[in-house]
Design a protein around this nucleic acid. Structure first.
Length: 340
DNA sequence: AAGCTGACCAACCGCTTTCTT
DNA sequence: GAAGAAAGCGGTTGGTCAGCT
Protein backbone atom coordinates (compact mmCIF):
# COMPACT_ATOMS: atom_id res chain seq x y z
CA UNK A 1 0.00 0.00 0.00
CA UNK A 2 2.85 2.35 -0.66
CA UNK A 3 2.13 5.93 -1.23
CA UNK A 4 2.42 7.26 -4.71
CA UNK A 5 5.92 8.66 -5.18
CA UNK A 6 4.94 10.87 -8.06
CA UNK A 7 5.38 14.12 -6.22
CA UNK A 8 8.71 13.07 -4.78
CA UNK A 9 10.34 13.08 -8.13
CA UNK A 10 12.82 15.89 -8.54
CA UNK A 11 12.62 18.53 -11.16
CA UNK A 12 8.86 18.64 -11.42
CA UNK A 13 7.28 22.03 -11.26
CA UNK A 14 5.07 22.99 -8.36
CA UNK A 15 2.98 25.99 -7.60
CA UNK A 16 0.53 28.01 -9.64
CA UNK A 17 -0.22 26.90 -13.14
CA UNK A 18 0.57 29.10 -16.10
CA UNK A 19 -1.80 29.69 -18.97
CA UNK A 20 0.51 27.70 -21.21
CA UNK A 21 0.35 24.72 -18.90
CA UNK A 22 -3.41 24.97 -18.68
CA UNK A 23 -3.67 25.05 -22.44
CA UNK A 24 -1.48 22.00 -22.81
CA UNK A 25 -3.47 20.08 -20.26
CA UNK A 26 -6.83 21.02 -21.74
CA UNK A 27 -5.66 20.28 -25.23
CA UNK A 28 -4.32 16.90 -24.30
CA UNK A 29 -7.42 15.83 -22.40
CA UNK A 30 -9.70 17.05 -25.14
CA UNK A 31 -7.81 14.95 -27.64
CA UNK A 32 -6.97 11.86 -25.65
CA UNK A 33 -8.83 11.92 -22.38
CA UNK A 34 -6.83 11.86 -19.20
CA UNK A 35 -6.17 8.11 -19.22
CA UNK A 36 -3.48 7.40 -16.67
CA UNK A 37 -2.76 10.56 -14.76
CA UNK A 38 0.75 9.40 -14.10
CA UNK A 39 1.49 9.04 -17.77
CA UNK A 40 -0.33 12.19 -18.77
CA UNK A 41 2.28 14.88 -17.99
CA UNK A 42 4.87 13.28 -20.22
CA UNK A 43 2.38 12.75 -23.03
CA UNK A 44 1.10 16.30 -22.71
CA UNK A 45 4.54 17.84 -22.46
CA UNK A 46 4.04 19.07 -18.93
CA UNK A 47 6.72 19.18 -16.28
CA UNK A 48 4.25 18.33 -13.55
CA UNK A 49 3.38 15.24 -11.63
CA UNK A 50 0.19 13.42 -12.56
CA UNK A 51 -1.37 14.25 -9.29
CA UNK A 52 -0.92 17.94 -9.85
CA UNK A 53 -2.45 17.59 -13.30
CA UNK A 54 -5.41 15.69 -11.96
CA UNK A 55 -6.09 18.31 -9.28
CA UNK A 56 -5.72 21.16 -11.72
CA UNK A 57 -8.17 19.50 -14.06
CA UNK A 58 -10.75 18.36 -11.54
CA UNK A 59 -10.71 21.52 -9.45
CA UNK A 60 -10.26 24.20 -12.04
CA UNK A 61 -10.06 23.37 -15.73
CA UNK A 62 -12.94 20.97 -16.14
CA UNK A 63 -15.46 22.72 -18.38
CA UNK A 64 -18.46 21.65 -16.33
CA UNK A 65 -17.36 23.50 -13.25
CA UNK A 66 -19.57 26.26 -11.99
CA UNK A 67 -17.60 29.12 -10.59
CA UNK A 68 -18.67 32.16 -8.70
CA UNK A 69 -20.53 32.76 -5.48
CA UNK A 70 -22.78 30.17 -3.93
CA UNK A 71 -26.52 30.62 -3.98
CA UNK A 72 -28.64 30.56 -0.84
CA UNK A 73 -29.95 27.16 -1.89
CA UNK A 74 -26.45 25.83 -2.26
CA UNK A 75 -25.54 27.19 1.13
CA UNK A 76 -28.51 25.47 2.69
CA UNK A 77 -27.65 22.23 1.00
CA UNK A 78 -24.08 22.38 2.18
CA UNK A 79 -25.10 23.09 5.74
CA UNK A 80 -27.67 20.33 5.72
CA UNK A 81 -25.35 17.81 4.24
CA UNK A 82 -22.52 18.82 6.51
CA UNK A 83 -24.77 18.26 9.48
CA UNK A 84 -25.29 14.74 8.23
CA UNK A 85 -21.97 13.88 6.71
CA UNK A 86 -19.42 16.05 8.42
CA UNK A 87 -16.35 16.93 6.40
CA UNK A 88 -17.17 14.49 3.64
CA UNK A 89 -16.58 17.11 1.01
CA UNK A 90 -16.69 14.79 -1.94
CA UNK A 91 -20.05 13.42 -0.83
CA UNK A 92 -21.36 16.92 -0.30
CA UNK A 93 -20.01 17.99 -3.66
CA UNK A 94 -21.77 15.13 -5.39
CA UNK A 95 -25.05 16.74 -4.36
CA UNK A 96 -24.08 20.14 -5.63
CA UNK A 97 -23.92 19.95 -9.39
CA UNK A 98 -20.88 21.55 -10.96
CA UNK A 99 -19.24 22.36 -7.67
CA UNK A 100 -15.99 20.75 -6.60
CA UNK A 101 -15.22 19.35 -3.21
CA UNK A 102 -12.30 21.71 -2.91
CA UNK A 103 -14.46 24.72 -3.62
CA UNK A 104 -17.09 23.61 -1.14
CA UNK A 105 -14.45 22.92 1.47
CA UNK A 106 -12.98 26.38 0.99
CA UNK A 107 -16.39 27.99 1.06
CA UNK A 108 -17.25 26.17 4.23
CA UNK A 109 -14.06 27.18 5.95
CA UNK A 110 -14.19 30.79 4.88
CA UNK A 111 -17.91 31.57 4.93
CA UNK A 112 -20.33 29.03 6.27
CA UNK A 113 -18.35 28.09 9.32
CA UNK A 114 -18.25 31.69 10.42
CA UNK A 115 -21.87 32.16 9.55
CA UNK A 116 -22.89 29.31 11.83
CA UNK A 117 -20.64 30.58 14.58
CA UNK A 118 -22.29 33.96 14.34
CA UNK A 119 -25.64 32.26 14.64
CA UNK A 120 -24.42 30.56 17.78
CA UNK A 121 -24.16 27.18 16.13
CA UNK A 122 -21.14 25.00 16.56
CA UNK A 123 -20.11 24.21 12.97
CA UNK A 124 -18.69 20.88 13.98
CA UNK A 125 -21.58 19.46 15.93
CA UNK A 126 -24.32 21.70 14.53
CA UNK A 127 -25.45 22.21 18.06
CA UNK A 128 -25.88 25.56 19.71
CA UNK A 129 -22.77 26.82 21.30
CA UNK A 130 -23.10 26.49 25.04
CA UNK A 131 -21.58 29.89 25.62
CA UNK A 132 -24.38 31.48 23.62
CA UNK A 133 -27.37 29.88 25.14
CA UNK A 134 -28.97 29.76 28.47
CA UNK A 135 -31.89 27.90 29.74
CA UNK A 136 -34.31 30.71 29.09
CA UNK A 137 -33.68 30.37 25.42
CA UNK A 138 -35.72 27.21 25.53
CA UNK A 139 -38.77 28.89 26.96
CA UNK A 140 -40.61 29.35 23.66
CA UNK A 141 -40.04 25.72 22.92
CA UNK A 142 -41.44 24.66 26.23
CA UNK A 143 -44.52 26.72 25.65
CA UNK A 144 -44.92 25.12 22.29
CA UNK A 145 -44.40 21.78 23.91
CA UNK A 146 -47.25 22.39 26.27
CA UNK A 147 -49.50 23.16 23.33
CA UNK A 148 -48.31 20.01 21.69
CA UNK A 149 -50.24 17.91 24.17
CA UNK A 150 -53.26 18.17 21.95
CA UNK A 151 -51.38 16.36 19.23
CA UNK A 152 -51.58 13.18 21.13
CA UNK A 153 -54.94 11.59 21.40
CA UNK A 154 -54.73 9.50 24.50
CA UNK A 155 -57.89 7.58 24.14
CA UNK A 156 -57.87 6.55 20.54
CA UNK A 157 -55.90 4.14 18.51
CA UNK A 158 -54.16 6.24 15.95
CA UNK A 159 -51.42 5.85 13.47
CA UNK A 160 -48.81 8.51 13.90
CA UNK A 161 -46.57 9.71 11.19
CA UNK A 162 -42.89 9.94 11.79
CA UNK A 163 -42.93 13.67 12.35
CA UNK A 164 -45.49 13.38 15.05
CA UNK A 165 -43.56 10.64 16.73
CA UNK A 166 -40.42 12.68 16.48
CA UNK A 167 -42.21 15.54 18.16
CA UNK A 168 -43.37 13.22 20.84
CA UNK A 169 -39.85 12.09 21.38
CA UNK A 170 -38.58 15.66 21.51
CA UNK A 171 -41.21 16.53 24.02
CA UNK A 172 -40.34 13.50 26.02
CA UNK A 173 -36.76 14.63 26.06
CA UNK A 174 -37.73 18.10 27.12
CA UNK A 175 -39.50 16.65 30.08
CA UNK A 176 -36.50 14.57 30.89
CA UNK A 177 -34.30 17.62 30.79
CA UNK A 178 -36.64 19.59 32.97
CA UNK A 179 -37.01 16.81 35.43
CA UNK A 180 -33.30 16.63 35.95
CA UNK A 181 -32.24 19.44 38.23
CA UNK A 182 -28.66 19.64 37.17
CA UNK A 183 -29.26 19.01 33.55
CA UNK A 184 -30.02 22.46 32.28
CA UNK A 185 -27.03 22.72 30.06
CA UNK A 186 -28.26 23.13 26.52
CA UNK A 187 -25.31 21.20 25.18
CA UNK A 188 -26.78 18.08 26.70
CA UNK A 189 -30.08 18.56 24.99
CA UNK A 190 -31.13 16.51 22.07
CA UNK A 191 -30.28 18.10 18.81
CA UNK A 192 -33.83 18.27 17.61
CA UNK A 193 -34.57 20.51 20.56
CA UNK A 194 -31.57 22.64 19.96
CA UNK A 195 -32.31 23.27 16.35
CA UNK A 196 -35.87 24.26 16.87
CA UNK A 197 -37.50 27.21 15.29
CA UNK A 198 -36.20 30.02 17.37
CA UNK A 199 -32.60 29.38 16.47
CA UNK A 200 -33.00 30.14 12.82
CA UNK A 201 -36.01 32.36 12.78
CA UNK A 202 -37.72 29.64 10.89
CA UNK A 203 -38.19 25.96 11.15
CA UNK A 204 -35.26 23.83 12.02
CA UNK A 205 -33.00 23.39 9.09
CA UNK A 206 -32.58 19.80 9.99
CA UNK A 207 -36.26 19.20 10.07
CA UNK A 208 -37.42 21.26 7.20
CA UNK A 209 -34.75 21.40 4.60
CA UNK A 210 -34.74 19.19 1.61
CA UNK A 211 -31.45 17.46 1.81
CA UNK A 212 -31.21 16.57 -1.80
CA UNK A 213 -32.47 19.50 -3.71
CA UNK A 214 -35.64 21.39 -3.85
CA UNK A 215 -37.91 18.79 -5.28
CA UNK A 216 -36.93 15.57 -3.66
CA UNK A 217 -37.48 15.01 -0.01
CA UNK A 218 -36.08 12.27 2.08
CA UNK A 219 -39.20 10.25 2.33
CA UNK A 220 -39.50 10.27 -1.40
CA UNK A 221 -36.02 8.92 -1.74
CA UNK A 222 -36.68 6.31 0.85
CA UNK A 223 -39.86 5.24 -0.80
CA UNK A 224 -38.18 4.99 -4.13
CA UNK A 225 -35.30 3.07 -2.70
CA UNK A 226 -37.25 0.12 -1.43
CA UNK A 227 -40.08 -2.08 -2.32
CA UNK A 228 -41.89 -1.24 0.84
CA UNK A 229 -42.96 2.06 2.18
CA UNK A 230 -42.46 2.67 5.79
CA UNK A 231 -45.01 2.74 8.45
CA UNK A 232 -44.89 3.81 11.98
CA UNK A 233 -47.38 1.63 13.58
CA UNK A 234 -47.77 -0.93 16.24
CA UNK A 235 -46.11 1.40 18.62
CA UNK A 236 -46.45 1.78 22.31
CA UNK A 237 -45.34 5.20 23.40
CA UNK A 238 -45.03 6.99 26.62
CA UNK A 239 -47.06 10.08 26.84
CA UNK A 240 -44.49 12.79 27.24
CA UNK A 241 -46.41 15.01 29.57
CA UNK A 242 -46.99 12.18 31.91
CA UNK A 243 -43.47 11.00 32.06
CA UNK A 244 -42.69 12.77 35.28
CA UNK A 245 -44.23 10.03 37.27
CA UNK A 246 -45.48 6.86 35.77
CA UNK A 247 -45.38 6.94 32.03
CA UNK A 248 -48.75 6.48 30.52
CA UNK A 249 -48.72 4.03 27.74
CA UNK A 250 -50.65 4.62 24.61
CA UNK A 251 -51.45 1.71 22.45
CA UNK A 252 -51.31 2.82 18.91
CA UNK A 253 -52.29 -0.46 17.44
CA UNK A 254 -52.93 -3.94 18.57
CA UNK A 255 -49.39 -5.11 18.66
CA UNK A 256 -46.84 -3.70 21.03
CA UNK A 257 -43.55 -2.65 19.63
CA UNK A 258 -41.41 -0.37 21.67
CA UNK A 259 -41.27 3.13 20.34
CA UNK A 260 -38.07 3.58 18.43
CA UNK A 261 -36.01 6.47 19.64
CA UNK A 262 -36.82 8.97 17.02
CA UNK A 263 -34.64 11.59 18.52
CA UNK A 264 -31.91 10.62 20.83
CA UNK A 265 -31.97 12.09 24.22
CA UNK A 266 -28.22 12.13 24.33
CA UNK A 267 -25.31 11.00 22.25
CA UNK A 268 -24.95 7.97 24.41
CA UNK A 269 -28.54 7.05 23.97
CA UNK A 270 -28.21 7.62 20.30
CA UNK A 271 -25.86 4.73 20.02
CA UNK A 272 -28.44 2.49 21.52
CA UNK A 273 -31.30 3.74 19.49
CA UNK A 274 -32.77 1.30 17.10
CA UNK A 275 -34.43 2.54 13.98
CA UNK A 276 -35.99 -0.12 11.97
CA UNK A 277 -36.39 0.18 8.28
CA UNK A 278 -36.87 -2.68 5.97
CA UNK A 279 -33.89 -3.89 4.00
CA UNK A 280 -31.77 -0.84 4.45
CA UNK A 281 -28.93 0.18 6.64
CA UNK A 282 -28.70 3.54 8.24
CA UNK A 283 -25.60 5.09 9.50
CA UNK A 284 -24.42 8.42 10.38
CA UNK A 285 -21.04 9.78 10.93
CA UNK A 286 -20.08 8.74 14.40
CA UNK A 287 -18.05 11.74 15.17
CA UNK A 288 -20.20 14.52 13.86
CA UNK A 289 -23.69 13.27 13.61
CA UNK A 290 -24.58 10.70 16.09
CA UNK A 291 -27.68 12.67 16.93
CA UNK A 292 -28.65 14.16 13.65
CA UNK A 293 -28.82 11.49 11.09
CA UNK A 294 -31.92 9.84 12.21
CA UNK A 295 -34.07 10.10 9.15
CA UNK A 296 -37.13 10.46 11.27
CA UNK A 297 -35.85 13.72 12.54
CA UNK A 298 -36.31 15.17 9.14
CA UNK A 299 -39.66 16.26 7.96
CA UNK A 300 -40.24 13.10 6.09
CA UNK A 301 -43.74 11.83 5.88
CA UNK A 302 -43.99 8.15 6.34
CA UNK A 303 -46.65 6.29 4.55
CA UNK A 304 -49.29 5.23 6.93
CA UNK A 305 -51.33 2.70 5.08
CA UNK A 306 -48.87 -0.05 4.56
CA UNK A 307 -48.72 -2.97 6.83
CA UNK A 308 -45.09 -3.79 7.00
CA UNK A 309 -43.90 -3.43 10.55
CA UNK A 310 -40.55 -1.78 10.57
CA UNK A 311 -38.90 -4.46 12.48
CA UNK A 312 -37.11 -6.39 9.81
CA UNK A 313 -33.75 -4.87 10.38
CA UNK A 314 -32.24 -3.52 13.49
CA UNK A 315 -30.20 -0.53 12.59
CA UNK A 316 -27.21 0.55 14.53
CA UNK A 317 -25.04 3.56 13.89
CA UNK A 318 -22.66 1.70 11.68
CA UNK A 319 -25.24 0.30 9.37
CA UNK A 320 -27.16 3.50 9.22
CA UNK A 321 -24.09 5.25 7.85
CA UNK A 322 -24.03 3.06 4.82
CA UNK A 323 -27.68 3.79 4.34
CA UNK A 324 -26.99 7.47 4.06
CA UNK A 325 -24.11 6.76 1.77
CA UNK A 326 -26.45 4.79 -0.44
CA UNK A 327 -28.85 7.66 -0.59
CA UNK A 328 -26.17 10.17 -1.32
CA UNK A 329 -24.59 8.03 -3.97
CA UNK A 330 -27.89 7.59 -5.73
CA UNK A 331 -27.84 11.24 -6.43
CA UNK A 332 -24.24 11.42 -7.47
CA UNK A 333 -23.67 12.60 -10.94
CA UNK A 334 -21.99 10.41 -13.50
CA UNK A 335 -18.25 10.80 -13.86
CA UNK A 336 -17.49 13.67 -16.13
CA UNK A 337 -16.86 12.88 -19.76
CA UNK A 338 -15.78 15.30 -22.34
CA UNK A 339 -18.68 16.12 -24.64
CA UNK A 340 -18.47 14.45 -28.00
C1' DA B 1 2.58 55.70 0.64
C1' DA B 2 3.94 51.96 3.48
C1' DG B 3 3.06 48.39 6.52
C1' DC B 4 -0.08 45.29 8.67
C1' DT B 5 -3.90 42.11 8.87
C1' DG B 6 -7.29 39.07 7.50
C1' DA B 7 -9.95 36.82 3.80
C1' DC B 8 -9.83 34.00 0.06
C1' DC B 9 -8.65 30.02 -2.62
C1' DA B 10 -5.50 27.28 -5.64
C1' DA B 11 -2.41 23.94 -4.85
C1' DC B 12 0.14 20.80 -2.14
C1' DC B 13 0.86 17.03 1.33
C1' DG B 14 0.16 12.81 3.01
C1' DC B 15 -3.02 9.28 4.39
C1' DT B 16 -6.58 5.94 2.85
C1' DT B 17 -8.90 3.27 -0.44
C1' DT B 18 -9.24 0.86 -4.66
C1' DC B 19 -7.32 -1.40 -8.50
C1' DT B 20 -3.96 -4.34 -10.76
C1' DT B 21 -0.54 -7.80 -11.11
C1' DG C 1 -3.38 -13.13 -0.34
C1' DA C 2 0.45 -9.82 -0.85
C1' DA C 3 2.55 -5.97 -2.81
C1' DG C 4 2.74 -2.02 -5.45
C1' DA C 5 0.53 1.52 -8.28
C1' DA C 6 -3.06 4.67 -8.98
C1' DA C 7 -6.67 7.40 -7.54
C1' DG C 8 -9.48 9.59 -4.00
C1' DC C 9 -9.87 12.42 -0.25
C1' DG C 10 -9.45 15.80 3.55
C1' DG C 11 -6.33 18.87 6.00
C1' DT C 12 -3.16 22.42 5.49
C1' DT C 13 -0.21 25.86 3.37
C1' DG C 14 1.14 29.88 1.15
C1' DG C 15 0.46 33.47 -2.39
C1' DT C 16 -2.47 37.26 -3.57
C1' DC C 17 -5.37 40.97 -2.73
C1' DA C 18 -8.31 44.28 -0.37
C1' DG C 19 -9.13 47.02 3.52
C1' DC C 20 -7.48 49.35 7.39
C1' DT C 21 -4.24 52.10 10.23
Amino acid sequence: MGRSPCCDENGLKKGPWTQDEDDKLIDHIQKHGHGSWRALPKQAGLNRCGKSCRLRWTNYLRPDIKRGSFTAEEEETIINLHSLLGNKWSSIASNLPRRTDNEIKNYWNTHLRKKLLQMGIDPVTHRPRTDHLNTLAALPQLIAAANFKSLLNLNQNVQLDATTLAKAQILHNIIQVLSTNNNNNPSSWPLAMQTSDNLFGQSSYLENQNLFGQSQNLSHILENSHDEDFIVKNQTIDHPLDSFSSPMQMDVQDDHYPLPLLVSASPEESKQSQIKIKNKDIVHDQHHHRDTSNPSSTNSTFTQDHHQPWCDTTIDDKTSDSYWKDIIEQTCSEPWRFPE
